[in-house]
């Protein structure tokens, strides 16, 4: 099978390159007591280092024929004919790269979110804000040859959640991202520039690094705004990448 992504760092017949060791200083701690759910769900023992395994350097691929025609359009993909979701209409777009700066093409990105009132279409969400009959809350795209992606949605509402008594999530969109290696697998959340709830959120603050939080904060992008139609937000995503300092191949397995 053709394998353009790793390009010059991989020979045709060799194993995929090892990834750089994960930099845990820019990742949330497993246990962050202010986020109560982590208290009983955070492993207590150290992770066991297991780098360079073939099974973790490979991963599933998804073709460009996977997403249906409306999968990228959350404004319409659950709406009745002629209807659309309530809320401020936006384009969310950006580029998926790895740590080496290379775009990651052909990668599956799945997104989900609350509606404009802050309510999820989920049986476990009983928030007072009503469901929007024309909003399902999920979408998916495959990145282009240049790693770019975009989808259409409405700005999700902030909502209260049972954690510390009066905690509110900043408006956010959940992202599930595949690279080419199972070890690159990432789930994260995109926040919106200027939201005062970001700084107050125990889930956000599980991340110890301010720069890392800032990089999860999408910026208003007037250049991609569609006049008289929708605003645009830019959100770039970075996955782990090949180790620039290490050219020996994986140890196997």
């Amino acid at each position: 099978m053709d394998w353009p992504y790793w390009g010059d760092v991989m020979s045709d017949s060799g194993p995929p390159p090892r990834l750089s060791p994960r930099d845990f200083s820019v990742q949330p701690a497993a246990l962050s007591p202010a986020y109560r759910s982590s208290r009983l769900r955070a492993p207590e023992r150290k992770l066991v280092a297991l780098p360079g395994q073939l099974g973790d350097l490979t991963g599933p691929a998804f073709g460009h024929d996977l997403p249906g025609a409306a999968d990228h359009d959350l404004i319409h993909n659950f709406a009745a004919a002629g209807a659309s979701a309530l809320g401020p209409r936006i384009i969310v777009h950006g580029t998926l790269r790895d740590e080496s700066g290379r775009p990651v093409p052909d990668a599956l990105i799945e997104v989900w979110q609350a509606n404009a009132g802050g309510r999820y279409r989920h049986k476990n969400d009983a928030y007072l804000a009503p469901l929007d009959p024309n909003f399902g809350g999920c979408g998916r795209v495959i990145t282009g040859a240049d790693g770019s992606y975009s989808f259409l949605t409405v700005v999700p509402g902030p909502y209260p959640w049972p954690n510390g008594g009066n905690d509110w999530r900043p408006a956010h969109i959940h992202f599930s991202v595949f690279g080419t290696a199972f070890a690159q697998r990432l789930i994260t959340q995109m926040y919106f520039e200027g939201d005062p709830h970001i700084a107050l959120c125990p889930i956000v603050n599980a991340i110890p690094d301010k720069g890392a939080i800032d990089r999860l904060t999408a910026r208003l992008d007037m250049g991609r705004t569609v006049p008289m139609d929708m605003r645009a937000y830019r959100f770039d995503i970075v996955l782990r990448g090949p180790d620039a300092t290490m050219f020996e191949n994986g140890t196997g397995g």
Partner: peptide
């Protein structure tokens, strides 16, 4: 190119099934 930094993970949350 300059080295980039991996995006921070965040919890999948209780509604991961939606996506």
């Amino acid at each position: 190119s300059d080295r980039l930094i991996e995006s921070a993970s965040q919890t999948a949350g209780p509604y991961v099934h939606i996506g």
